[in-house]
Design a protein around this nucleic acid. Structure first.
Lengths: 213, 213
DNA sequence: TCTGCATGGCGGCCAATCGTGCCGACGGCG
DNA sequence: CGCCGTCGGCACGATTGGCCGCCATGCAGA
């Protein structure tokens, strides 16, 4: 049986969530909290398997509650699923960085709510599809095309950039690529003019900022 | 009505998926494919709202199918939900980079399957909770604690590191922090000895690699 | 075919910057 | 009191960056 704590300042929402969850044979709601501080106290006392936490709450908002119950510094963290009406990016990242094991929008539908609770109980994380799609863009968009400027570089120059971005000196790069010191230097020079960078550190920074690494 | 194409080489799985989906009033399965090439052809011809694609298939695997139907180069991409038994990282990243609008493990349960199809139809993405939890680790793990070595640095030294990581020269750093060139240089030296790095580029690399930036 | 042009490799020269060592000074803290 | 961090100075050599050349290759267009 999965023991759930519900934290939301609106009684209507609380009973709605409770109705949905109590309908499932493997889930039981053991407590409700109407604000953040209460949520933290109840959770610490009862240690539910899963905490369903709204973002907007008095006294302590959902992000604070999440950090208090599941943050990186907490000795043995609880499973927290954050629920909200607003899918603002700050909320999402705040919640997930704060240790949340799930992020649900209130328009997600009962099935996802139930699945999110079950997943959280397993230690897995269910994130609302509309939020996930944005997270994925951040995660996979990096295949951004060469940024226009990488195209300006020849293959060999890109190799040199990569070496610089690993902290190699010109001499080491020469040894690595089997070319002489002077060749390396001329490559570095052309790289600098092509990218309008002033020194090798800027090249390294550029490489890291543009995922060339 | 959401029109779905099912692609899986095992007939048993196909009919299982079909049974689950046909149970929903808003979903209909319009075609099945037993291998990757067939899946691509059918999808291009019928243009279903959502394609449910297994990873392991003959002739063309699920990743190739995904890229062919939803890849970045495809003019108007279809919605593809990748289904697999194995949650290998290569599969996950391959699928999501390939343009998948969902990633499901076969042990996910019917509810998630249905929700994944609905989400995909909306243009959203549902990812299996057990996979999501790993993705989030990659996304939010960066809160790795100071790596032991940052602690070794004084506040002032960290400032200098940050400036170096932006490509600034010592003189510029001095102007930025209102200290003299020689002070900057002594800071840089101590930073190098503390972190056992050999030059400023390595400091910049270290900063980026350790999210100090 | 000859002629550009880009790429890659090599060298020298010189000035600026960087890296290092070694020095002294001050203030806060155990 | 000594230690440590912060700040500053000076000198030296190493490294880098800018600016010249030179040569070979390969590819596209006149």
């Amino acid at each position: 049986m999965i023991r759930v704590l519900i934290a939301d300042d609106q009684a209507m929402i609380r009973s709605g969530l409770r109705l949905i969850l109590e309908d499932e044979p493997d889930i039981t709601v053991i407590a409700e909290a109407a604000d953040g501080v209460e949520a933290i106290e109840q959770a610490r006392r009862l240690r539910p398997d899963v905490c369903l936490v709204d973002i907007r709450m008095p006294r302590a908002d959902g992000l604070e509650v999440t950090r208090a119950l599941a943050g990186p510094a907490v000795p043995d963290p609880l499973r927290v699923v954050v629920v909200t009406t607003f899918d603002l990016d700050e909320y999402v990242y705040g919640a997930l960085r704060g240790g949340a094991t799930g992020f649900l929008l209130k328009d997600a539908g009962p099935a996802l709510l139930v699945e999110a609770v079950r997943a959280a109980h397993h230690g897995d994380a269910l994130v609302s599809p509309s939020v996930t799609v944005r997270l994925l863009r951040h995660l996979t968009a990096p295949p951004r095309e060469p940024d226009e400027s990488v195209r300006a570089l020849s293959d060999r120059e890109v190799e040199v950039v990569r070496e610089i971005a690993r902290g190699r000196t010109n001499l080491e790069i020469g040894a690595e690529l089997f070319i002489s010191l002077s060749t390396v230097k001329s490559h570095v020079s052309t790289i600098q003019t092509k990218l309008t960078l002033r020194n090798r550190t800027e090249i390294a920074v550029w490489a890291w900022a543009n995922r060339v690494v």
